[in-house]
Simulated assay, not measured.
Amino acid sequence: MSEADGIVYSDVKFTRGKRNTSGTASSEAESTYSEVRILKTHPSTELPGSQQHPVSNGGSKVTPERVVIVVLSALLAAAVITLGFTSLDNMHTKQSFQTLRDELEAVKRNLTERCCEVKSYNTVQKTSPQPPVVKENESYPKCEYGWEQHGRQCYYFSTNYFTWSNSRDECRQKGGDLVQIDSREEQTFLELKLREKMNNIWDKFWIGLTDSEKEGTWLWVDGSPLNESLTFWFPDEPDNWTGKDPDGEDCVRMGEKAGAPDLKCWFDESCKYAHRSICEKPA
């Protein structure tokens, strides 16, 4: 817009009275015209005294940092929810397992009770029961673990190699003593057992027979004398050989890996040698 466009010309008439000499005002007015230039400007939309501010677009500024925070918050919320559901599922699973276990125990108890009832019923219903079959050693008290039973006696075949005296101490610590053979049947049982337990032909076992108190007088560990009609000496035994021990051979060991004719497998031996042993005690 040019400067001329902002100027408005207006005729303003001013009236000024004239004085006459007589001091009275003239009735005619003298008119004076003056040119007044007024600059026309565009009206302002601002209020007086206000400051002009940039116009906002009405929205907040979105930054990458805010986007990252929003995404992390969403992931954290999802993780918390997932953990909550997982914990709840585990709790339900544990409760289910416990319920199944209780049911299984109840079924087992039920089956056990039914089996007992059926067994009792069958026993009562038998009109002609058969006589029980008595197995060997069944009617006798039982031997403890590690001991082998024959009749009313229990036998322990030691795996330790001790002198005759130390072997006897081991048997006593176990509640017995070195074996005392009182019958051919007992000798047969022991001779067969030793064939199974001997590792080689030199693997021998001490028994509870000695003449250490008086040479030639054989006594069992309980002090009873040897029954000379019930002996199982190997041919030419006992010989009290002093080739290895000047004190001679005062204790007895037994055992033949290949088996002995007529069960004769007793040998006198130096009590200082180390052998395995046979312990015995009542069942």
Rank of each mutant, 00 (worst) to 15 (best):
D11Q: 07
V12C: 02
G17I: 05
S22V: 13
Y33V: 04
S34N: 06
I38R: 06
P43W: 06
P43Q: 11
V55P: 08
S56C: 00
L75C: 08
L76A: 11
A78M: 12
F85K: 08
T86Q: 11
T86A: 14
L88S: 15
K94A: 15
S96Q: 15
E105R: 13
K108T: 14
E113D: 15
C116R: 15
C116T: 13
V118A: 10
S120Y: 05
Y121K: 10
V124Y: 13
K126C: 10
P131W: 03
Y140P: 00
K142W: 03
E144R: 10
G151R: 02
Y155G: 01
Y156F: 13
F157V: 04
Y161P: 01
S165N: 14
S165G: 09
N166C: 01
S167E: 07
G176W: 04
D177V: 01
V179I: 11
Q180P: 01
Q180T: 13
Q187C: 10
T188R: 12
L190F: 05
L194M: 09
M198I: 01
I201A: 08
W206G: 03
L209M: 02
T210Y: 04
E215D: 01
E215A: 05
W218M: 05
V221L: 12
S229D: 15
L230F: 06
L230Q: 10
P238S: 02
N240R: 09
P246A: 09
G255N: 03
A258T: 04
D262G: 04
D268T: 02
D268G: 01
Y273H: 08
C279H: 03
K281N: 03
P282S: 09
A283K: 03
